[in-house]
Computed example of a mutant assay.
Amino acid sequence: MTEPLVFMYSGQGSQYFHMTRELYERNPRYRLWMEHCDEIASPIIGKSLLDTIFDPRRDRSDPFDSLPDSSAALVCVEYSLTRVVQELGYQPDFLLGYSLGEISAAVVAEALPLEDGVCFAVEFGRLLEQRTPRCGMLAIVGSADLLRTHAPLFTDCWVTARNFDGNFVVSGRSADVDELERALDAEQILSQRLPVDYGVHTALIDPVEEQARRLMDVLSFAPPQIPIISSATADRVDALSVDGVWAAVRQPVQFSRAVEKMTAAGGATFADLGPSATLATFVKYITARGDGSSQVSTVNRFGNDVKSMTDFRAFMTAL
């Protein structure tokens, strides 16, 4: 393989109950890493993380919308998937985080201890739940030109992510997003509600910036051992900082721009280490111009985790 290998980490909206359950049950190494994470995360969230993810009372389709619990779950799942893939012999040249996924990337890069990453994800989630208004997040299937041609519909919402040409995300207070969703439906514009109930990447979290920065002040930053690319800036992160972490959760996600910059000089292989294969799908549309890039996922929402991991190994072997 000559192209650089990029590990990608998704954020809020990609989580779901029972994610990676089959892999946990059938892959001893993944189970070992998840149990390691459970020992760290459970005292922080006040209950078993594994019991929370694999709660038998919950269906896969139920919204996993407790921000502290789902944030801890995402960091731990993405970390454990990475450890399994690294043990298979695949080492990334770059890490690309999307929103909360930037915390996962920092942990994998050893720029942030796992304990710190989980603790910050949980405490920041609690802060948003306790001190910021309930919001909604809507993924829109359509050109960003809609923001100009249908500007009045978006008056009380913020663009929080640009995923690829034909897919962007907006957020706002719950009532405003409800109204936008109805208006888009009336215009026959496709959209999907995401399980994110707080206003990350909007001005609605600005009132808790000071408290959030205090949470970040106690984090133990170290130089990244693997280069990190931020989706907030589309630039390389040479050193973690409080300003950089705040930007990751406050600024809009510029995922398409980040991928375009990474592939401007040639192709890359993008491996999705998130639970939903969301980012691999985004990359497919961004790099469709034929620059030699490729994308692959490790698991997805459909639950065939062992087959997905086998397919991942076959894909990587064929490169």
Score class of each variant (00 low, 15 high):
residue 100 L to C: 01
residue 51 D to L: 09
residue 119 C to K: 15
residue 69 D to K: 01
residue 50 L to F: 06
residue 66 S to G: 11
residue 102 E to Y: 02
residue 117 G to V: 11
residue 89 G to K: 12
residue 118 V to D: 11
residue 81 L to C: 08
residue 107 V to T: 04
residue 84 V to M: 06
residue 70 S to R: 14
residue 67 L to D: 02
residue 83 R to Q: 15
residue 73 A to G: 10
residue 43 P to V: 05
residue 109 A to G: 02
residue 74 L to S: 08
residue 60 R to V: 14
residue 104 S to K: 08
residue 99 S to W: 10
residue 45 I to F: 07
residue 41 A to T: 04
residue 50 L to Q: 00
residue 49 L to S: 12
residue 106 A to W: 00
residue 102 E to K: 02
residue 42 S to A: 06
residue 43 P to Y: 00
residue 93 D to M: 06
residue 38 D to L: 01
residue 41 A to C: 12
residue 95 L to N: 06
residue 44 I to P: 08
residue 90 Y to M: 07
residue 86 Q to E: 14
residue 88 L to V: 05
residue 49 L to F: 02
residue 41 A to V: 01
residue 80 S to W: 09
residue 118 V to P: 10
residue 93 D to C: 10
residue 67 L to E: 14
residue 105 A to I: 07
residue 106 A to E: 05
residue 47 K to S: 13
residue 118 V to I: 15
residue 73 A to R: 04
residue 55 D to G: 06
residue 110 E to K: 15
residue 69 D to E: 15
residue 94 F to M: 07
residue 39 E to F: 02
residue 113 P to Y: 04
residue 91 Q to T: 14
residue 115 E to A: 07
residue 71 S to C: 14
residue 39 E to P: 01
residue 66 S to K: 04
residue 45 I to Y: 03
residue 58 R to T: 07
residue 102 E to A: 11
residue 56 P to K: 07
residue 85 V to M: 03
residue 109 A to I: 04
residue 89 G to L: 09
residue 102 E to T: 11
residue 95 L to P: 03
residue 50 L to E: 00
residue 106 A to Q: 10
residue 97 G to Q: 08
residue 79 Y to V: 09
residue 59 D to H: 13
residue 100 L to H: 03
residue 55 D to R: 14
residue 93 D to T: 10
residue 104 S to G: 13
residue 69 D to I: 13
residue 74 L to Y: 00
residue 56 P to W: 03
residue 104 S to R: 04
residue 102 E to P: 09
residue 107 V to P: 05
residue 85 V to Y: 05
residue 61 S to R: 14
residue 83 R to T: 11
residue 51 D to K: 14
residue 111 A to M: 11
residue 40 I to Q: 08
residue 81 L to Q: 09
residue 64 F to Q: 02
residue 53 I to F: 01
residue 61 S to Q: 14
residue 47 K to W: 02
residue 114 L to S: 01
residue 37 C to L: 04
residue 51 D to T: 10
residue 100 L to W: 04
residue 99 S to L: 04
residue 58 R to S: 13
residue 111 A to R: 04
residue 51 D to Q: 13
residue 78 E to M: 13
residue 43 P to W: 00
residue 95 L to H: 00
residue 46 G to Y: 05
residue 59 D to Y: 10
residue 117 G to C: 07
residue 112 L to D: 10
residue 39 E to W: 03
residue 38 D to A: 09
residue 88 L to C: 12
residue 102 E to C: 08
residue 50 L to C: 05
residue 117 G to Y: 11
residue 100 L to T: 09
residue 63 P to S: 13
residue 68 P to E: 00
residue 104 S to Q: 06
residue 87 E to N: 11
residue 119 C to S: 14
residue 62 D to H: 12
